[in-house]
Amino acid sequence: MKLSSRDEGDVRVVALEESRLDSAGALEFKEQMRSLGAGGPRRVVLDMAQVQFLDSSGLGALVAVMKLLAPDARLEVAALSPAVAQVFALTKMDSVFTVHDSVQAALAAAPS
């Protein structure tokens, strides 16, 4: 599971450099995000541009990470591929997470 993190002003951008966030990788993702997201900026934007597939376990891990980081930081997501966006929409998680079209759009957006 490859994740990279950088701070852009008051936003921590974490890029998920994998084509899948699924059952096989959900636990490791959760553990890495716990350390990458903690103790930094209040906004954590997950760049999902490389992710082509998200399953229910991956989605559960995203919800878990959002809970883990709260209330000190808030997890947002950016750059969802069509298949990933479909999973967010069908489960109504697109109303739970702040979803940005791109990392640039996330950086330009006001804190939610």
Partner: peptide
């Protein structure tokens, strides 16, 4: 499905699988 306005603490971390299967 998750109901609108569910508090963060109360959000489920599972159970999305059958929801996706039934919808698709």
């Amino acid at each position: 499905a998750v109901e609108d306005g569910t508090a963060l603490d109360a959000l489920p971390e599972g159970g999305f699988g059958w929801l996706l299967i039934h919808q698709l």
